[in-house]
Design a protein around this nucleic acid. Sequence first.
DNA 1: ACAACCTCCTGGGGGC
DNA 2: TGCCCCCAGGAGGTTG
Length: 309
Amino acid sequence: MPKHSVKHPKRLSLDLEEPGKVNEVPELPEVETVRRGLAPVMEGMVIEAVTLNRPDLRMPFPKGFARRLSGQKIVSLGRRAKYLTADLGSGDMLILHLGMSGSFRVEEETVAGKAFHMPRGKQAAHDHVVFLLSSGSRVIYNDPRRFGFMDLISASGIETYPAFSKLGPEPVGNHLSGPVLAERLAGKKVNLKAALLDQQVIAGLGNIYVCEALNRARLSPERLALTLQPEECELLASLIRTVIAEAIDAGGSTLKDYMKADGSLGYFQHSFRVYDREGEACRNPDCHGMIGRMTQGGRSTFFCAECQR
DNA sequence: ACAACCTCCTGGGGGC
DNA sequence: TGCCCCCAGGAGGTTG
């Protein structure tokens, strides 16, 4: 009987267990962080088996999901907006969305440094999908609220895939400029908060980063999108890129810490300027305002009425 | 076409 | 201590 050398499970989750930390919902930076953490574990591996512990998440799994994935090689992991994508050798594409509470953890077990297939691991509450890889690693999807979903399509159909076909530009790199944002906001009779949450305007922003970007740009969440001037669009686009880039960097350092550690997850050191800071001081330079909170579209908006106009 | 809802789900927290 | 109710929100759906 070989002696087991069990590595601690590696968690690629966004759960923040430190007191006082916000439990983040995965937006673009968190999904990108998960992608970077999973890539070295999954890329180049063959999916040997997929276990579904229930027939659906937010939506039913596609017909034959587990069977169709079995034996497929994962060529590369990608991301579009808040979606993870896995290019498979056959030309299929696996699409994963983490919803509100989805997370992955990686379980490995080795004998004398050599991976082998371990018996079915201990199942935690809300472990819905287990990917067994040719390396012996298990990649486990956990999602208490089940707002996530998975789909399997032909990669050639990616352009017409409903969730992707209407997405706005990514707020990274050169995709989002002032003029691009201005064009996207033109004629929109909704407030800025709603406009920026709209994935067709910009892909990948959620409640947290919209609040953060608007605070940095000193723009009121209640401003109608169509009233933004070109220079305001320029500033907002720039600060959206900044907020997202900083969060991705923070996620990267989280992964780095985590890789060094013995399995315990390093947490985001990222501190938000407005999100969940009602009643606290605005952190914008030269602003002595206090962060307030209101409801827009049934969601909380955190903002500074003093400097955001 | 567009805007404003509504719905799915569970854990956690506040009130009594 | 226990129970009830509300809240968090991504995105697809429905209503106006």
